[in-house]
């Protein structure tokens, strides 16, 4: 089984690992402790102390905080319960006319705003653009990933988390609160 150095994985993340070494990683049997190494690297790079449970994206992390599992940006900005689509707690900028779309796409490269809108999800803490959606009006935001964290830790990694959390999408519950 391959055993890649943490330093090389960091170089890979930064896009500076030489191509032959990258190819070696691609071709070799995978290292079984990659997840732990990756989390350790990201833990050193984020601006918060909470324990990372899962790197949801390179910028967003599910962390353990005060007995809860919440989504948190690299900068430490919190988005709440990981079972609610974090986009509902983000800032959003929507481009749905030619003027706003032309800041990105010009002339013949511009999509038709009557067909789609560009939704930019922004971190309220650091201003990072976390996701962009190009969808027609009416499309609910994608809940990109709802992990089954307890199954992952207990059955796949073999080390259960100290607490449990039901694998359930709570997004519509949040929306229902807004509707009351």
């Amino acid at each position: 089984m391959a055993d890649f150095h943490k330093a090389d994985i960091e170089k890979l993340i930064d896009g500076v690992l030489p191509w032959p070494a990258t190819q070696d990683m691609l071709k070799s049997a995978k290292d079984t402790d990659r997840f732990d190494k990756y989390v350790a690297i990201m833990q050193e790079r984020v601006d918060f102390d909470e324990e990372i449970l899962l790197p949801l994206t390179p910028m967003l992390f599910i962390v353990a905080k005060a007995g809860e599992r919440i989504v948190q940006c690299r900068c430490g900005h919190a988005f709440g319960d990981y079972r609610v689509n974090w986009k509902l707690s983000a800032l959003i900028h929507v481009r749905d006319d030619e003027k706003s779309m032309s800041e990105v796409y010009r002339g013949r490269e511009m999509p038709d705003p009557a067909w789609i809108q560009l939704r930019e999800y922004i971190c309220g803490g650091c201003g990072a653009q976390l996701e962009v959606e190009a969808v027609p009006r009416g499309c609910p935001p994608d809940f990109d990933f709802l992990p089954d964290l307890d199954t992952f830790y207990s059955e796949w990694l073999g080390r259960p988390l100290p607490d449990k959390s039901e694998f359930k999408d709570l997004t519509l519950d949040r929306v229902a609160e807004w509707s009351e």
Binding site: T57, P58, M59, V104, Y105, R108, E109, M110, P111, D112, W115, I116, L118, E120, Y121, A128, Q129, L130, E131, V132, E133, A134, V135, P136, D142
Partner: peptide
């Protein structure tokens, strides 16, 4: 041709339409 794909992965802007 009228739209771009919903591929704004991690905050990128999708590739331009085919014209």
């Amino acid at each position: 041709s009228k739209i771009v794909g919903n591929h704004g992965m991690y905050g990128a802007y999708p590739a331009v339409p085919d014209r």
